[in-house]
Simulated assay, not measured.
Amino acid sequence: MIKLFMIGCDGAMGRTITEYVKTQDDIIISAGFSPVKGYSCEYPVYNNFDDVDPNIFDVAVDFTHFSLFDSIAGFAQRCKKPIIIATTGLSEENVATLKKLSRDFSVFHTKNMSYGVNLMLDLIARASSNISGYDIEIIEKHHNKKVDAPSGTALMIANTIKNNINRPVEFLFGRYGKDTKRKEQEITIHAIRGGTIPGDHTVIFAGPDEIIEISHSALSKKVFAAGAIKAARFIIDKRNGFYDMNSIINS
């Protein structure tokens, strides 16, 4: 039985994973962390990482906020247990820190826990490397509680295109004004916030007389919970190293 430590158990994803794990036979949540004092649920909840005994869990999953990164990195370094970092909005410096930590224990990091999103990225990479003369736009939609924009997934999509397309690329975030004629090298990213949209991403390749669209829509947060548990099962017996969803897809 895999014992999971849920970092951010009070958040929307933490609560979703808590419910999802109840449907699984090989994994339990042994404890969790919440920055909200007084928060409680069916397992022990800690408000201070220093109080957590590493022996109570096998793998940790983080769905919190990037402002807590330093505390979580320090906790991971002390425990030296496999950890899954699914928090969005991390800086390049934060990711570099995770890669450094992965020398001592296994670290899994992705900006989107959906298996389908990562398959979509593979399709986008192939399309980008085989296309020319097409204008490219990215549209992402999320619920009205999401704090970062554009989404981490939209940035993953943009960088996937940049790394595979055979032309210079310049990112533009939104479009406004009276003199905004498109430049050939532009990839424009549009962020929409509203309602309870779990996550929707579309890439538009607009060419002469035709349009190609590659889209992914998350219908509920359960898809991200399923991805997190898939990652936990994957990383639990892996050697020290830095892993992502492609590691699962290619395994």
Rank of each mutant, 00 (worst) to 15 (best):
K100A: 14
G116D: 15
A96R: 11
R103M: 09
G116M: 13
M113Q: 04
G89E: 01
V107F: 01
N94H: 13
F105N: 03
L101G: 09
R103A: 15
V117Q: 11
K111W: 05
F105M: 09
S106F: 04
L101A: 13
L98D: 03
L90D: 00
L90N: 01
K100F: 09
L98W: 05
H109C: 04
K100Y: 12
G89M: 02
N112K: 05
H109T: 00
E93S: 14
F105L: 05
K111I: 00
T97L: 13
T88E: 00
D104E: 15
T97S: 08
T87D: 00
S114Q: 06
V117H: 15
V107L: 02
R103P: 11
T110A: 10
S102N: 09
H109L: 00
K99E: 13
R103K: 15
G116A: 15
N118P: 09
S91G: 08
S106K: 12
H109W: 00
V117Y: 15
D104G: 07
L98G: 04
T87P: 02
D104P: 11
S106G: 12
T110P: 14
E93K: 12
T110N: 14
D104N: 14
F108D: 03
S106A: 15
S114R: 04
K100D: 14
T110R: 03
T110K: 05
E93Y: 12
N118R: 09
F108M: 03
T97Y: 01
M113E: 02
T110E: 14
N112F: 03
F108C: 09
K99Q: 15
V107K: 06
H109G: 03
V117G: 12
K111F: 06
H109S: 05
G116I: 09
K99V: 05
N118I: 07
K111S: 12
V117D: 14
V117R: 10
N94A: 06
H109M: 09
E92H: 08
E93H: 12
